[in-house]
């Protein structure tokens, strides 16, 4: 046996040795995100296939309103920035900074979900676009509904971490707990950045 060939990636950081320079839970979140990409890719493709299927009932141009969704998009974009600031606070052990920015992030999540609930209600009651009215409706509601569910889950997760932070349970050593949630949050944000132009803008501009 040669002894010269020891793996240089193996770092001696005491308790937990990982083969790659990344904590396992963070790696797992990246892997999960890769999988989620295929999930949303399938939903988005279906919408693109079916967006013109509205022989019966209203189509994209009859229902989509850009200003409200733009506001939602902006809120979600800002929330990604806010959660980075919160993480920075957690890593520095700055509890006030952590609480301030994390509360803002959660608020953004709540606002976005609220925006979507309002939008769906408006479409159904005012524009008479029910879930099964036509395939444009079904694929639109399914895609944005699943995205909204992801935002809701993320909001619940961040709110739980906010409660932890309030009780002082997120010291710098546990900032990873927030970092992983933030990773998920950024992903949900990125998906919306694809949905916004592909679903709303491109359907209107055609």
């Amino acid at each position: 046996m040669t002894t010269a060939a020891l793996d240089l990636h193996a770092h001696d950081a005491g308790a937990h040795h990982t083969s790659m320079p990344v904590p396992s839970r963070k790696l797992a979140m990246w892997v999960f995100i890769a999988s989620e990409c295929m999930f949303f890719a399938t939903l988005i493709s279906t919408f693109v296939i079916y967006r013109d299927s509205h022989a019966k009932g209203p189509g994209p141009k009859d229902v989509f309103g850009v200003p409200l969704v733009t506001a939602g998009t902006a809120v979600l974009l800002f929330s990604s920035f806010f959660v980075v600031m919160a993480l920075n606070g957690a890593q520095q052990g700055d509890r006030k900074k952590l609480l301030r920015w994390l509360s803002l992030t959660v608020l953004c999540g709540v606002f976005f979900v609220g925006m979507q609930v309002y939008e769906f209600t408006h479409f159904v009651t005012e524009k008479h676009l029910g879930y099964t009215t036509n395939l444009f409706a079904s694929s639109f509601y399914t895609l944005t509904g699943f995205h909204g569910t992801h935002v809701a889950v993320g909001t619940l997760w961040l709110a739980t971490l906010l409660k932890d932070a309030w009780k002082g349970r997120i010291p710098p050593a546990k900032a990873l707990n927030l970092e992983i949630a933030a990773l998920y949050w950024h992903f949900v944000d990125v998906v919306w950045i694809i949905i916004f132009p592909v679903v709303y803008l491109m359907s209107l501009g055609r």
């Binding site: 793996d7 990982t18 083969s19 396992s24 790696l27």
Partner: peptide, 12 residues
């Protein structure tokens, strides 16, 4: 996936 990438013995 995570186990294989991250839990290998030293030197593997």
């Amino acid at each position: 996936f995570t186990t294989i990438l991250n839990m290998r013995a030293r030197g593997m």
